[in-house]
Computed example of a mutant assay.
Amino acid sequence: MQKICPDPLIWNKIYVKLKRNWVENGQEGTHPPKPLVVDLWANSTDSEKAERWQQTLAWALEHQCYALVTKVEDEQMYSIAS
């Protein structure tokens, strides 16, 4: 199985945490990448989902809040057959 990104509900919760952290730190730089959830989930490819998740991980690392995205369990990930 290839892990693509967190399931939509989990991904949105992570986004809320990242955005809250960004606001609390004075909104320095760009805002966190928006998750592909709700309508965006249905209208995006697995490749687009994976790319956006990687952008989210990179953003979190750059903004010193990577710990907020590393606690995703395997069963909380959207995966596809390899």
Rank of each mutant, 00 (worst) to 15 (best):
P8M: 11
Q27R: 07
R52E: 01
M77L: 08
P32T: 14
C65D: 08
Q55L: 04
P8K: 12
L40V: 14
K71C: 08
Q55S: 10
R52C: 05
N12I: 09
L57F: 07
S82R: 10
M1I: 08
P32V: 14
A81N: 00
C65L: 08
D74R: 02
E62G: 10
K19N: 08
S47V: 10
S79K: 04
K3H: 12
A42M: 08
Q64Y: 00
K19M: 14
Y66N: 03
K34W: 15
E73Y: 01
K3N: 13
L18K: 00
L40E: 15
K13W: 08
Q64S: 03
D39S: 12
H31S: 11
S47G: 06
W53K: 12
K13Y: 11
Q27Y: 01
A60W: 09
R52Y: 02
S47C: 10
V69S: 02
T56Q: 03
V38D: 15
N21G: 09
Q76Y: 11
W11A: 06
Q55H: 11
T56N: 03
L57K: 09
P33I: 11
Q76L: 08
W59D: 01
P8R: 13
L68I: 05
A50M: 06
Q54T: 07
C5M: 09
E24Q: 14
P6R: 06
N25R: 15
Q55I: 08
K49N: 02
I14P: 03
W11M: 02
L36W: 03
T30Q: 11
Q54W: 03
P33F: 14
Y66P: 03
A50E: 07
E24I: 06
G26I: 15
D7C: 01
T45S: 02
Y15K: 00
L40W: 13
S47D: 07
E24C: 13
Y15G: 00
K34V: 15
L9V: 13
A60V: 13
I4D: 00
S44E: 00
M77C: 06
V23Q: 03
T70M: 13
A42Y: 13
T56S: 00
A67H: 14
E28W: 14
R20Q: 10
K13Q: 12
E28N: 11
Q55N: 10
I14C: 07
D39C: 10
T30I: 09
A50N: 04
K49H: 07
V23T: 04
W41Q: 04
N21Y: 15
E73A: 05
V69I: 09
L61V: 06
M1A: 02
K71G: 11
W53D: 01
K71D: 12
Q27K: 10
P6I: 01
E62N: 10
L61T: 10
D7I: 05
K3W: 06
M77A: 12
I14N: 05
P33M: 10
T70S: 09
K3E: 12
T30S: 07
H31Y: 14
